[in-house]
């Protein structure tokens, strides 16, 4: 029998640091792979970035006139912060599609049979998807500015609002990874592409929940999208004073953290149980 002189039991902290270094290096390699996907399939990526603009135009110009908004604000100003949040929700599809495609094509198994850490795979996905969403947010914000949307607060508050939006995106990343690992194949992503619509509509993104039946409005108010939208409206000062929900910002920090606290361990557990 080959006996293994185990030096592993005396791992120095240097070795641990080296391993951590490789986690980041591998994660970056995997993130770069996604950036290469953008170059190989620019059509898909650009469509994903432009799609929210189409929704803004549709609601802003077509339906907007007929929608009642809280006093002291225009529909367009009301809509933009909500659309930023919806764009973060759309990112869920991107994450789920990437994760489920890798699993279906055996790429996940290939990663798992290689001497690299699972954290690197996840971290790489995280970097790539966050970059994607940042670009999407910038494109939508610039479009909004061109069409007349403005923030009325400080630049710092505006950045804080974008930060909260990306925090929501970060939370949805884990939902996407979890659902992607559980999906039967890329086809199941189509279901999610449909489901994002009722989730978006059942929020304060497009209409004021005060105009809904009380019970439905209550559900809409607690939609994480609504919470982040409210916080963004508050920080951008895009809502009349009556709208400034006192705790919106606090909730917009807490709720994504709760989602992350639930779905991050679930994703890790699912990944570990792929070997069952």
């Amino acid at each position: 029998m080959v006996t293994l002189q185990s030096s592993r039991s005396v791992q120095s902290s240097q070795a641990a640091m080296a391993r951590l270094g490789w986690v980041f290096a591998d994660a970056w390699t995997i993130a770069v792979r996604d950036l290469q996907h953008w170059r190989q399939q620019p059509g898909i990526v650009i469509f994903n970035w432009v799609f929210p603009i189409l929704i803004v135009l549709m609601f802003g110009l077509l339906f907007g006139g007929a929608i009642v908004v809280p006093e002291g604000t225009s529909y367009f100003e009301f809509l933009m912060p909500g659309m930023f949040a919806v764009t973060m929700l759309f990112g869920l599809e991107t994450t789920m599609m990437a994760v489920t495609t890798d699993a279906a094509k055996g790429v996940t198994d290939r990663f798992r049979s290689m001497p690299m850490s699972a954290s690197a795979v996840v971290l790489g996905r995280c970097i790539a998807d966050m970059l994607n969403s940042i670009v999407g947010l910038v494109i939508l914000a610039v479009t909004g500015l061109v069409l007349g949307w403005r923030w009325h607060g400080s630049v710092g508050a505006a950045f804080a609002a974008f930060g909260l939006l990306l925090l929501l995106r970060f939370a949805l990343l884990w939902v996407g990874i979890f659902m992607g690992l559980n999906a039967k194949g890329p086809e199941s992503v189509a279901t999610i592409q449909v489901l994002v619509w009722p989730v978006s509509f059942l929020s304060n993104v497009f209409v004021d929940p005060a105009t809904m039946p009380a019970w439905l409005g209550a559900i809409a108010q607690w939609n994480p999208l609504s919470v982040t939208s409210s916080a963004a409206r508050t920080l951008f000062e895009n809502a009349g004073t009556s709208w400034a929900a006192e705790n919106a910002v606090l909730l917009a920090i807490l709720m994504p953290l709760v989602i992350t606290a639930v779905f991050l361990p679930l994703s890790v557990r699912k990944f570990r149980h792929l070997n069952q």
Binding site: R33, Q36, Q40, K105, G106, D109, R110, S113, M114
Partner: peptide, 18 residues
């Protein structure tokens, strides 16, 4: 894992990349 290579039942390559 440091000593093996795996060629699974379906070509496990990135379809989008060259």
């Amino acid at each position: 894992r440091q000593h093996i290579g795996l060629v699974g039942q379906y070509a496990a390559i990135d379809e989008i990349l060259t």
